[in-house]
C-alpha cells in the first residue's frame, strides 16, 4: 500500500499576483506558519518588530517541509530561522543558509493589505 495525498494545485492566473493568506493577527509574533500558495509551500514569519518574511517551507537539508516550525531570532543583525530538523540557520531576508552559504531557500514578496497578509509566488 502506498498512501499519497495529492497536492491541491490552484491553477495560476497570470494577472493576479498577490494571494491573500490570513489575517495579520493570526500570525504569532516570532513564530512561523505554513501556507499553501498556488501549490507551493511557503513559510511565513512575523518578527518581533512586526516585519513579515516569506521563504520556502522546504528544508533543503532534510527534504522535509518544516521551515515554518523553526525557532526565529537574529544572528548579528540578520533576522533568521533555524530549521527544526538539524538546526541549520537561514536568513529570512535573503534565504541563504548562514551555516552553508551555498544552500538557500527561496524568498517570496509578502505584504499586508487591509489587515490581510498577502504573498506573491510568481
Amino acid at each position: 500500500m502506498t498512501t499519497v495525498q495529492k497536492a491541491q494545485v490552484t491553477p495560476g492566473n497570470a494577472g493576479e499576483k498577490w494571494v491573500p493568506i490570513c489575517p495579520y493577527d493570526d500570525l504569532i509574533p516570532e513564530r512561523g506558519a505554513a501556507a499553501l500558495v498556488r501549490g507551493r509551500q511557503v513559510a511565513l514569519f512575523r518578527a518581533f518588530d512586526g516585519r513579515l518574511f516569506a521563504v520556502g517551507n522546504r528544508d533543503p537539508f532534510s527534504g522535509a517541509y518544516v521551515i515554518s516550525r523553526g525557532i526565529t531570532g537574529t544572528r548579528g543583525d540578520e533576522p533568521v530561522v533555524a530549521t527544526p530538523m538539524h538546526k541549520q540557520v537561514f536568513s529570512l531576508v535573503t534565504g541563504v543558509c548562514l551555516d552553508d552559504p551555498a544552500t538557500a531557500v527561496p524568498t517570496y514578496p509578502i505584504r499586508v493589505t487591509n489587515g490581510t497578509v498577502e504573498v506573491s509566488v510568481e
Partner: peptide, 22 residues
C-alpha cells in the same frame, strides 16, 4: 488549537509532501 494546522490558509488540507509506504 489554532496552531495545529498544516497550512494557515487551508486548515483542512493535509501536507501533500507527507507520503507513506508499508
Amino acid at each position: 488549537l489554532r496552531r495545529f494546522v498544516s497550512f494557515v490558509n487551508a486548515p483542512g488540507t493535509p501536507d501533500p509532501s507527507i507520503v507513506f509506504e508499508t
